[in-house]
Amino acid sequence: MSEIIRREESGEVAILHITSTSVDAISASAIAAECREMRPITVLDFSEVSFINSAGISALLKFVVQARKGGFKLFAMNVSPHHQKIFKMVEMSRFMPTIEERDLAEYR
């Protein structure tokens, strides 16, 4: 298991807690590698993430690609207002909408 992502799985749901504070050129490849093991409902948790740049967005898009290939649902959770703004700028939120933790219950 990679140290950069802590996995929490329950039924069809996988919550991937990103433990790196920076989703950038340095952490991108390790984060992207985790997209190989997605569940039908996969949630990326950004609660510990304080910085995301375009290299990080490229890594996150690998989850989007994998989700589309597998017919999975992909969500983002605990996205800061700044990162919500950036996701909206590049229209990432169309492909990885945000979800509240309380709303995950319906999938479990």
Partner: peptide
């Protein structure tokens, strides 16, 4: 999946 930098 790249190329957002200058736009940002």
């Amino acid at each position: 999946l790249r190329g957002f930098g200058m736009y940002l």
